[in-house]
Design a protein around this nucleic acid. Structure first.
Length: 223
DNA sequence: CCAGACGTTGTT
DNA sequence: GTCTGG
DNA sequence: CCAGACGTTGTT
DNA sequence: GTCTGG
């Protein structure tokens, strides 16, 4: 998966959706997110469940080099997330849910790329399986919280556009995910009729475009 | 990942 | 082509 | 037991 | 933080 998450979700929608794991608090709408910019992360902390904005791109707590030398960690592969040094610690003890109204995938060749918007057919927000970490800058000692989205195989329907897709907890068990259970069974693709899709403007991936513009997911040219 | 920008010369 | 911003 | 290592994702 | 090597 690549691109950004888009469109707003209402408090009511998220709360209803997240009721799988219990009541949610402090939820804020967010439309559209790019790597290295914050995403909303629902985690289980000492104070209970909280929605926290974090850097998109997980930084393992043991990372000692400058942030700029960190490889791309905005996605983690479901197949290897348990073993990769970059993710395994968070996979064990810092799972989270990343609410989003939808996500983008691109089709076409360079110079003729077409962005598609994907969201739940029932209109409810999606909840991606994620991981988070807290890292402390060796120089400034500043703490930085970060997160990543787990991606797995696409289902047949999705394969028409892309062979990967985020792990969506709506069709797994969000509660079990947060409890650290049955990862293999949890990280399955959703039913074939779970999502809907339409073409949007390439504007979605343009630098300088605000993340909170609902117009980003307006249908574009016909397919 | 993708979209968009990317400007040089002389000058003590 | 390569780098930056999101 | 301790010391030291440990890089990911996407590629039309 | 977690795993491996010694």
């Amino acid at each position: 998966m690549c691109g950004r998450f888009t469109q707003s979700y209402t408090w009511a929608e998220v709360e209803r959706f997240l009721s799988v794991v219990g009541p949610a608090r402090n939820l804020r709408p967010r439309y559209n997110i790019a790597p290295t910019t914050p995403i909303d992360v629902l985690r289980l902390g000492k104070a209970g469940r909280e929605l926290v904005p974090m850097r998109w791109g997980l930084v393992p707590s043991w990372w000692k080099k400058p942030l700029g030398e960190l490889p791309s960690t905005f996605n983690a592969r479901a197949e290897t997330v348990a073993e990769k040094p970059m993710f395994r610690s968070a996979f064990k003890s810092r799972r989270c849910i990343i609410p989003a109204s939808g996500f983008y995938e691109w089709t076409g060749k360079p110079g003729a790329k077409t962005p598609h918007y994907f969201s739940a057919r029932d209109g409810r927000p999606l909840a991606f399986a994620g991981l988070w970490e807290c890292w402390r800058d060796p120089e400034t000692k500043e703490p930085l919280e970060s997160a990543t989205v787990i991606v797995g195989s696409a289902n047949e329907w999705m394969r028409a556009f892309h062979d990967r897709m985020p792990v969506i907890l709506a069709w797994c068990d969000a509660g079990a995910w947060m409890a650290g259970e049955n990862p293999a069974e949890l990280l399955q693709p959703p039913p074939e009729d779970a999502l809907q899709e339409w073409i949007v403007s390439p504007r979605v991936n343009r630098s300088g475009v605000g993340d909170d513009d609902p117009a980003l997911i307006e249908p574009s040219r016909a397919a």
